[in-house]
Nucleic acid binder design. Sequence first.
DNA 1: ACTAATAACATTTTT
DNA 2: TGTTATTAGT
Length: 766
Amino acid sequence: MPYTFLNELNPSQREAVEYCDGPALVVAGAGSGKTRVLTYKIAYLLRQGIPPWCILALTFTNKAAREMKERIEALVGPDARRLWMGTFHSIFSRMLRAEAEAAGFPPNYTIYDASDSRNLLKTIIKEMHLDDKEYRPADVQNRISMLKNRLVTPQDYGQDAAAYEDDMRSNMPLFRDIYSAYAARLRHSAAMDFDDLLMNTYLLFDRYPDICDRYRARFRYILVDEYQDTNYAQHKIVLQLAGDGRIPVCAVGDDAQSIYSFRGARIDNMLTFDCLFPQARIFKLEQNYRSTQTIVSAAGSLIAKNQGQIPKRVFSEKEKGDPIELFQAYSDTEEAAFVARRLQELRRTGGASYSDFAVLYRTNAQSRVFEEAFRQRGIPYRIYGGLAFYQRKEVKDLVSYFRLVVNPSDEEALKRVINYPARGIGATTLGRIAAAAAQQQTSLWGAILNLEAEPAGLGRSALLKVQAFARLVGSFVELNAQADAYTVAERIVRETGIQAEIFNDSSPEGLSRQENIQELMNSLRAYCDTAQEETGYAARMEDFLSEAALQTDQDTADDDGSTPRVTLMTIHAAKGLEFRNVFVAGLEEELFPSAMACYSPRAVEEERRLFYVALTRAMEHCCLSYARSRYRYGKMEFCNPSRFLSDIDPQYLEVHAPGGGGNAAYSVRSFRPRGEVLQEKRNAPEAPAAGRSWKRVAPSRPVPEGAARSGPNSWVEPGMRVEHERFGAGEVVSVEGEGENAKAAIRFDTCGQKQLLLRFARIKRL
DNA sequence: ACTAATAACATTTTT
DNA sequence: TGTTATTAGT
């Protein structure tokens, strides 16, 4: 009975899973079991005898790919590991490394993140003596990104009249020159930005049809998750690989949840799928298994106000459920107080845990009032959306060393670390090197290596310092040729002086920096261990980097789950998640919908979809709120209720009168700005100083209490039971070494004995 | 070359 | 309001 798992699907899910002979579009309403269909479909394909390496499955997040892989593994076993499953970016970057020569890059190219590429643009704008008020780096970056998403190369750009006109209109006639200079610099640095990973893959397949054919010959089925979020480039690559339908593509998505157009996503890719593949079959998943009927119907009444969507009728067969509550507050502080109070009530009466709650908002800035309110009341919470782990300065600095070792041409990495830790190489010196590099048509590193012949006008002491730096990096490069990633990293931390710099600072910020460095070393260690286990080879730094560059906080910031906490996040961040109880706060004009969206009907529709996403996160209970006044940029502003509130059919709403008392006194439609409203002075936060120091420093990764800080070695001894974040529980066999070099041998219950450097190992006493 | 002070700024952000 | 980046001062 090899297909019994199909019985766990409803008829429409099952149909979508079993149809494998041609292209398919699965329109999956919110909570309709989209991931289930994808995973079961892959399992089904495998059961039909298609080898795992012939199936390509593309997702947007690492998290989605990982979870899907795990679920498939649970269905079919370890074969799942050989699937080509991952994010667009990671799969394509893999292909680009394999086909590096044809792609015109070395296989060890590094990946620039958004801030690297912005820094590079800044330098270019400065070097071209342009005004950075006219050519705002962020704008330029965005424009370039959009162009790349549309597969417009700098060469094509001259012919793209529309884009050029747009630049003239925005007062950036020289934009094209920036774009080509940027591309040239990336090439010199042997680096690609995120968008290049897509565009260069497209170009590779376009220019070398034989390479594309090779992949086409390999893949027998292609699946794409969240198709509504694909941009033009992604869409085109899918078409290339599909060979216009010769290889079946199954695209899964929900047009009603398309909320990333500002990143280049094109809902049209989904809406026109059946035109591109005339033989395509369309499946609709309309039964929602997540939410009560009230929530599903309310969300449906909202989204019906949008034009141009794929017709579908999402329904729920769960109980009717409670109405959606709507609160009006006088101020943002009061709104937070409402939410806190209602949350406690629901928790007590509904027997829910803190982790069953989420507070969702449009902008990250709104989190602050909730933080304060929750802290005052002792409600445990967790905020998502601080700086990503890899964006933190100390982490990026160290990673920049890694990058430099793998690819010394990487200019942004070099600029970051040439004077970190401080070694007296300042702006002037760097400027001279840059000038020499430009003159010699080489990279900064090339110019540095060439200093002996061309001293570039450097003074004696500067020259010596730079050469010492070059030797240091050179020694790492040599080591990297033969050692595994962790060994290289350890030596870098020690010999650059990062260790001395970071580990001698005992201020709270310093401690947080230490933790982050430890965390990075931990993940490196974990990476090396897994690679060793799985492949039998020592893990290379280049491999670690190519993964790390595409890793985001969502992947690293795993809650340890020990204390249940309320989740606070933007609605964007909540896509794909679900909670028993959801609060959606700040439903005000110019906030939600955002002021910037109000000028364009298309943008307002996207905001409405965003609200739709927010509502459909809730399983049982949903509370909406807005405030009549709110502090924005330090100034108090009066607000009006969001237009979206009147988009929801009032039969699903229960409106609470101002002040929080009473119930449905009047309908939403009667909401009008009513001139004067009682104004309270914003009460001074209770303990701002106490909060501030730890508030944003390290929002993710809770450190086991009292562990990492308590100083090395003093707290483990042989015989002790400990728990490691990755390896689970185990027993300390022996401890050797002193202070920073203390190592423990630990026999883990599930994965055998391992040597861990206590300085970096995140372990907790049991 | 580094620090302190101030000016400008500010949706959302899967990679 | 809070952050970030540039600038002025030592």
